[in-house]
Amino acid sequence: MTASSLRLRAGLVSIVLLAAFLGIWHLATRSAAPVATMSPEYAKLMGLTATQGKSAMPGPLDVGAKLWEHLKRPFYDNGPNDKGLGIQLAYSIARVGTGYLLAVLVAIPLGFLIGMSPLLSKALDPFIQVLKPISPLAWMPLALYTIKDSSISAIFVIFICSIWPMLLNTVFGVASVRKEWINVARTLEVGTIRRAFTVILPAAAPTILTGMRISIGIAWLVIVAAEMLVGGTGIGYFVWNEWNNLSITNVIIAILLIGIVGMLLDQILARFTRMVTFPE
């Protein structure tokens, strides 16, 4: 069996599974026979759920039609409560990007320092151990109170949740660079700065990138919850707003898009990881 035939068969199974899922979903939510006879005026008020026995849960066709509508006009802006999905996603991605980049800027240099200094490593360990398991949303009230800006508070929450995996992986990666590579640099009288960039950074890069990949996943998980809290804009706010509108169709569409964007972010980091990974 060649690899390509395996991939082909796996793809086929995936399509079959998707079709089965959509089929069951469609059957489960389709309209049944009219449940009761009533005057047309009353029926109009009650809607299809009461008159046709239609499930309140939208079927795949409803979701598809609505999704197509969204895809045709991703960037419309009809005021605070009615913006295109593209705009909402762009807000979320921008928040995640800002908070995440700030975390990269802090975690990697700090991780380098901690990894290279056993003293700092021991001294900071209790703080990291206590701060790491705190749910990022627990910081939200404190952030809102001190920063006094909901949008920046959301960015702060992303920052604080994505810093830990990166920091810990950088520390671990830097501290576990093989002694022999360090010795090579030492026998060549390579200075500390040059050693950090030519030996430690490339040696620790795969571990650091793995931490960054974990972080972006967590950041994308957290942004939805954070935006539900702070409101205003973003895909998390959109989900909550559509729940308040009782538009399950839109909620399902948002869930789908959150998944796809999360996957793309992960794939981007996976590609970077592959770029810095070296075979031994």
Binding site: E180, N183, P202
Partner: peptide, 10 residues
């Protein structure tokens, strides 16, 4: 010259 050659793999 190191026993484990100690080449930088990247």
């Amino acid at each position: 010259i190191f026993q484990s050659h100690a080449l930088l793999p990247w």
